[in-house]
Amino acid sequence: MKRELLSFGSIVIDNVLVVKRFPSINETVLAEKYRYTYGGAGANVAVAAARLGVKSSLFAVSGRDFEKTNYKRHLKNEGVDTSGIIPSRCLMPRSFIVSKENSDDQVLYYYENKRETRKILFENIEKAYKLSSESEICHFSTGHFEFYYRLLKKKVKNVVSFDPGQETFNYPYRVVRILPFVHMLFMNNHEAKRLKEILKIRSIRQISGPKLVCVSLGAQGSIILFKGELFKIPAVKPSRVVDPTGAGDSHRAGFLSSLLKGYDVKTAGRIASVVASFTIEAEGAQTSLPNWEKVVRRYEHFFKEKFPSPQTTWERTKEELLS
C-alpha cells in the first residue's frame, strides 16, 4: 500500500475539563464540563488527514485497553491504516487537560510504563523504517525522540515533517539534534522563542535544516517561511470557541494534506487555518474534525473568494523540500 502520510506519535485517552478559570495552588475550581475523548498527537494528525481524504497511517504503541476503549475501531472507521500500531501490555497513556476559553491549556500526563513503550519501539524500528519508505510524508509529533533520532539516522528517504511540541521545553537537546533530518518544522510561538534561545539565534530564519518553517500564533494566525518568502496566514474564526485541544495537530494535518493535494504553501497555510478552526468548536481533539467539503465552504465564507484549484503538484513541492 502506498501511504501518503505516516504519522508518528502517541495514542492517548484525553480527559478534558473545561473551566472558567484555572485554580490557584490548593484551590478547588468547579469544572463546567467533562469529556472523555480520543487523542494523542500522532493519532490526531492521522485522523484529521484521513477525514480530508488523505491515505494516512499511524505508527505508535497502543495498550491493553486499545480495543476495550473502542479506539482501534474508531481509527478503522475513520479510514486510518493501523498496520503500524504495536500492541503493549500497559495501559494506554492518559492526559488530563484543564482547558479555559481563549487561553492555553494546563496538561497532566500519565504513562504506566514509559520504559516498556521505549523498548517496544526500538524492537520495531525496522518495521517503522519500512513503513516510512512507503510513505510520501513522515510526520513526527510529540513522542519518543530518542527513537525518532535513531530512525532518522537510518536516512528516511521521503519528506520529514516535525512538530516537537512541549518537548522543546522538556528535552530541548533531543529536539535540536533531530533538526538536520527535517524538511518541514512546525512550532507555536512559545516553542519558537525557546528554540531561538537554545540555538542562540535572533530569528527563525537562522534555523538550519528545515526548508519550511511554520509558526502558529494562536488567534493571530501563523507565519510560514519557505524559499526565502514569508507568508502571513490569518486565523479563521470558528463558529464558537469551546476547547483548543488538538488545534495544532489538525492544523498540521490540514497543511500536509493540502500539499499532497497539489496546493502551494500559502494556500496550504490558509486551508490549515480553516481546518484548525473546526477543532476548537467542541471538546476533544478529534470530535469536530471536518471533511474536505466543509473546509471548502468555510474557506469561501471566510476568505470571500472561490476555493482555488491546486496551483502546483506534490511532486514539485517534494522536489523543492528535498533539494
Score class of each variant (00 low, 15 high):
245 T>E: 05
245 T>H: 07
245 T>L: 07
246 G>V: 03
247 A>G: 13
248 G>T: 11
249 D>E: 15
250 S>P: 07
250 S>E: 05
251 H>E: 09
252 R>N: 13
252 R>S: 07
255 F>I: 11
256 L>M: 10
256 L>H: 02
256 L>F: 00
257 S>Q: 11
257 S>K: 04
258 S>G: 04
259 L>P: 02
260 L>M: 08
261 K>V: 01
261 K>E: 15
261 K>N: 09
262 G>Y: 14
262 G>A: 14
263 Y>W: 12
263 Y>D: 02
264 D>K: 02
264 D>I: 10
264 D>N: 15
265 V>M: 05
266 K>G: 11
267 T>W: 10
267 T>L: 09
267 T>I: 15
268 A>Y: 00
268 A>L: 10
268 A>C: 12
268 A>T: 05
269 G>P: 02
269 G>D: 08
270 R>E: 11
270 R>F: 09
270 R>G: 03
271 I>S: 02
271 I>A: 02
271 I>W: 00
272 A>P: 09
272 A>K: 08
273 S>K: 09
273 S>A: 11
273 S>N: 10
274 V>C: 10
274 V>S: 12
274 V>G: 08
275 V>I: 03
275 V>P: 01
276 A>I: 03
276 A>P: 08
278 F>M: 07
278 F>T: 04
278 F>G: 03
279 T>H: 06
280 I>T: 01
281 E>S: 10
282 A>W: 03
283 E>V: 12
283 E>R: 00
284 G>D: 03
285 A>F: 08
285 A>M: 02
285 A>N: 02
286 Q>T: 08
286 Q>R: 11
287 T>W: 05
287 T>E: 06
287 T>L: 01
288 S>Q: 00
288 S>C: 10
289 L>G: 01
289 L>I: 05
290 P>K: 06
290 P>M: 04
291 N>Y: 07
291 N>F: 04
291 N>V: 06
292 W>R: 00
293 E>S: 13
293 E>F: 13
295 V>L: 11
295 V>W: 01
295 V>N: 07
295 V>Q: 05
296 V>R: 05
296 V>N: 02
297 R>P: 03
297 R>N: 14
297 R>K: 15
298 R>Q: 09
300 E>M: 04
301 H>Y: 15
301 H>F: 15
302 F>R: 07
302 F>M: 09
303 F>H: 04
305 E>H: 06
305 E>R: 09
306 K>M: 13
306 K>L: 11
307 F>G: 07
307 F>E: 04
308 P>W: 09
309 S>Q: 14
309 S>A: 12
310 P>L: 09
310 P>W: 12
312 T>G: 12
312 T>F: 13
314 W>R: 04
314 W>K: 02
315 E>I: 10
316 R>M: 14
316 R>E: 15
317 T>N: 12
